[in-house]
Computed example of a mutant assay.
Amino acid sequence: MFRSLLLSLTCSSISFAGTLEQTGNLLLAAQTLATPGYEWSIDDVPGLKEYGESQLCNALTVLGLKAAIDKERPDGSGYDSFPSGHTSIAFANATHAAVRYGWNRYTVTSFLIATGVGYTRVASERHDETDVVAGALIGASSAYLFTTHHRTKALSFRYIPHGAILSFRHEF
């Protein structure tokens, strides 16, 4: 009884901004695991390499700018507000997936998640809109620079009435 009352009081005392920030962090973690996880599942080694290169470029750019520009966070917790690293990672993930595999349900969802991460950074007062937009542009640009379209080869065989069809598809 006492534990449930204490848990209830603790949960109700968590601020809305803190909960929102945690939600954004969870969305980012899921997206960051899903992007290379998909590439690993289809054995797309070049895609994994490009993902790593784009995230390295993204991280170096963001960390360099954070060190060079001492912008205070809206909540006053530090002087590393510009640009938003969380947003840059999220948009690098989404852009990498879109460039590599084209527009589909996953990439649209990934961009919605990236936008949600940016929103949570502003709503939780960790960044302002300028920080988030800059992070999105840096992340998207980093992925765009290092990512190539995934080319697929497909050989298919299909039975039809009174025969069969053998087809070969290659994307250039």
Results as ranks from 00 to 15, higher is better:
131 D>Y: 11
131 D>T: 01
131 D>H: 01
131 D>L: 03
132 V>G: 09
132 V>L: 01
132 V>F: 03
132 V>N: 09
133 V>N: 05
133 V>F: 06
133 V>S: 09
133 V>K: 09
134 A>P: 00
135 G>M: 01
135 G>K: 00
135 G>F: 01
135 G>R: 09
135 G>S: 10
136 A>T: 03
137 L>P: 04
137 L>G: 11
137 L>F: 10
138 I>K: 01
138 I>D: 02
139 G>L: 06
140 A>D: 00
140 A>I: 01
140 A>E: 07
141 S>W: 12
141 S>I: 08
141 S>R: 05
142 S>G: 09
142 S>E: 09
143 A>W: 04
145 L>P: 13
146 F>Q: 06
146 F>Y: 13
147 T>L: 03
147 T>Q: 09
148 T>R: 11
148 T>K: 11
151 R>P: 06
151 R>N: 07
152 T>N: 12
152 T>A: 14
153 K>S: 15
154 A>H: 15
154 A>T: 11
155 L>N: 03
155 L>A: 10
155 L>W: 07
156 S>A: 07
156 S>Q: 08
156 S>N: 11
157 F>W: 11
157 F>S: 05
158 R>K: 12
158 R>Q: 15
159 Y>R: 15
159 Y>D: 12
159 Y>K: 10
160 I>P: 09
160 I>M: 00
160 I>F: 04
160 I>E: 01
161 P>K: 02
161 P>H: 06
161 P>I: 02
161 P>F: 06
162 H>K: 13
162 H>W: 13
162 H>P: 07
163 G>R: 06
163 G>L: 08
164 A>W: 04
164 A>R: 05
164 A>M: 07
164 A>K: 08
164 A>D: 09
165 I>N: 04
165 I>F: 04
165 I>L: 08
166 L>S: 05
167 S>E: 05
167 S>L: 00
167 S>A: 12
167 S>G: 11
